[in-house]
Amino acid sequence: MEHPILFISLLLEALGAPVPHTMVGTTLAAKLSSPHMTYTWLVMAFLIIMPKLTLGKMEMIPGKGQNFWEAIIDGLEGFMADNMGKEGAKMMFPMLATFSFYIVVANMIGLMPGFMSPTSNLNVTLGCTLIVFVTTHILGLKFHGAGYIKHFLGPIPWLIPLMFPIELISHLARILSLSIRLFGNIMAKETLLGILFMLAGAYFAPLPILCLGVFVSIVQALVFVLLSILYFSASMEHAH
């Protein structure tokens, strides 16, 4: 397949940076200038600059920009409060809102020609998933102390040698399923768009896939955040 044209990579190459031609480079400089890293930084810059530009001064009677952001933030917080209670939602809101904004923008940016989705690289999604995984267990330890081990032992004492490995396996399977779902969906979208552009781009062949891409981007971001909410609330409540 043809190499996609990524304008940041072209720009960096013109400036003399060692942009790798494989998925991930070998040296540190090549790793830092590989496409998924540079596009992650683009998404981060977009997310920092865009609210600053549109929000303006905070006012009692919101204007256009403030109204938009308030609606989004309010919707997200309501969504979290439904699933993990008001207290938990307040505590975990900054992290989960960051994840949802980052993943939505990172998925959507790949729909434009010349850009790619950072989430179509397994390393990025695995990083997000490991953060969620570690936070889940930190929350469990914080809420239950040493008694958190009861979550892994099951209800019956003499079944402990059987239940402990089973629980361990099902917790490790969460890492794989959470990261590979997001990666797989977005990679499929990107690859399909690339192939269709190459075959019949002049006849608008990728148009239906672009529409589906918008839907998939939003649903996958929502599912990622929803599953992290479920894992967090499961580790916060008492063992059954």
């Binding site: 396996i169 099902s170 399977a173 794989l176 399923s177 649903v219 599912v223 929803l226």
Partner: peptide, 28 residues
């Protein structure tokens, strides 16, 4: 609609959790 989205997220994990549990068991 919100409830439907939540259930969609829940049930889309079933197949994957079965497959990956078995793979992780064999891997260990």
């Amino acid at each position: 609609r919100r409830e439907m989205m939540r259930l969609l997220g829940d049930f889309s994990t079933i197949g994957m959790s079965v497959a990956f549990s078995i793979f992780i068991g064999v891997g260990i």
